[in-house]
């Protein structure tokens, strides 16, 4: 799966759960500070991303995912190692 596809999929999930338009979900954006996603929505997004890509995203790892790129990298790492 190419990075673009992962990014697009993540953006769609973010829009679905938080209402932030997918075209604003760009790699450099910070989830909390830029996209204003609150902590509970972040948990839902993580679960949805995990389900979508069949990767484990433990709750304790969420604080390391500051930007959209962090999420994409995490998915790539998990899917390559899988």
């Amino acid at each position: 799966m190419s990075e673009k596809t992962i990014l697009e999929s993540v953006a769609d999930i973010v829009e679905d759960i938080s209402g932030v338009p997918a075209d604003q979900v760009t790699p450099e954006k910070r989830l909390v500070d830029d996209l204003e996603i609150d902590s509970l929505a972040l948990i839902e997004i993580a679960v949805a991303v995990g389900e979508s890509f069949r990767v484990e995203l433990p709750d304790e790892d969420l604080k390391e995912l500051r930007t959209v790129q962090d999420v994409v990298d995490r998915i790539e790492k998990a899917t390559i190692s899988a």
């Binding site: 679905d16 759960i17 209402g19 509970l40 839902e44």
Partner: peptide, 8 residues
């Protein structure tokens, strides 16, 4: 009520 708000 908008869809995103309804999730909450």
């Amino acid at each position: 009520v908008d869809r995103v708000h309804r999730r909450r």
